[in-house]
Computed example of a mutant assay.
Amino acid sequence: MHFLMDKKQIIKVRGILKSDGKTLLCEHIKGFFHFLPGGTLETGESLHQCLVREFFEETGLNVVVTDFVGCLECHWADHLTSYQELNMIFNVSTKDFNQFVVVAIRPIYIAHASNVVYWWT
């Protein structure tokens, strides 16, 4: 049986933050996947505004958006919806590193979100 699925497009902005040769990654608390800090673009927001806002909300860090790195496109479907997610990826920098220590072996808990931990890798 063939049926039409709803289609949904999502635009996200992600940031690459490096320190001492390590990159900050988020990990879902259940360990399902890793991702770069960032989030969903809101209506009327620029890509840079979105990334600055999301980075602060997730990590408490004030970042400056620098170079555009590229776009990662993902596709998946659930029961009735087909998704297309576009991840706009930028390099970012910060002067707020005094808020936490770079840890290479264990996660750091700097986020307000209860389902995410952050790793330097």
Rank of each mutant, 00 (worst) to 15 (best):
L72H: 09
L72W: 04
N98S: 12
V65G: 02
I105E: 13
G60Q: 04
T121D: 12
V69L: 07
P107C: 03
F55A: 04
G60Y: 04
E58W: 03
H34A: 02
K18F: 08
Q99V: 00
H112G: 14
N98E: 10
L72R: 10
L86M: 10
L61K: 01
H48F: 10
N87R: 13
H79S: 14
E73N: 06
H75T: 15
S114I: 07
A113S: 07
H2V: 10
L17A: 13
I108R: 05
T43I: 06
L80D: 15
S114K: 11
H28T: 11
Y118R: 06
D96E: 01
R53S: 06
V64T: 13
Y83P: 12
G31T: 02
M88D: 07
R14K: 15
G38D: 06
H75P: 11
F97G: 02
I105C: 01
V13C: 14
Q9C: 03
N98V: 09
N115W: 13
G15A: 12
S114R: 12
M5C: 00
N91R: 10
H34R: 10
I16W: 05
F68E: 09
S82A: 15
I10C: 03
K7G: 00
K95A: 09
S46F: 06
F68K: 08
K95R: 06
E85K: 08
C50L: 04
E27I: 04
L72N: 12
L61N: 00
P37H: 03
Q84T: 13
R14D: 03
H28Q: 11
L36A: 07
L61W: 01
D67A: 08
F33K: 05
N91M: 08
A77G: 05
V102M: 09
F56W: 05
K18V: 13
L51A: 05
N62I: 02
H75C: 14
C50N: 11
V116L: 10
M1D: 07
T40E: 04
F100P: 05
I105M: 08
V13T: 14
N87F: 10
G31E: 02
L4I: 03
P107L: 04
R106E: 12
I110Y: 01
F32R: 14
H79D: 14
P37V: 01
T121M: 13
E85I: 02
H112V: 11
F55S: 03
Y118F: 15
R14G: 11
V103D: 14
K30L: 15
L4W: 02
T66S: 11
V103E: 15
F100Y: 13
T121I: 12
V64A: 07
C74T: 14
D78I: 03
Q49S: 07
L25E: 07
I16L: 05
H75S: 15
D6G: 00
S19F: 10
Q99S: 01
W120E: 11
H48A: 13
V69C: 05
T66M: 08
Q99E: 00
F100G: 08
E45D: 10
K30V: 14
G70N: 01
S19M: 14
T43C: 00
T81L: 07
A111Q: 12
W76K: 14
H2M: 05
F100S: 09
A111M: 09
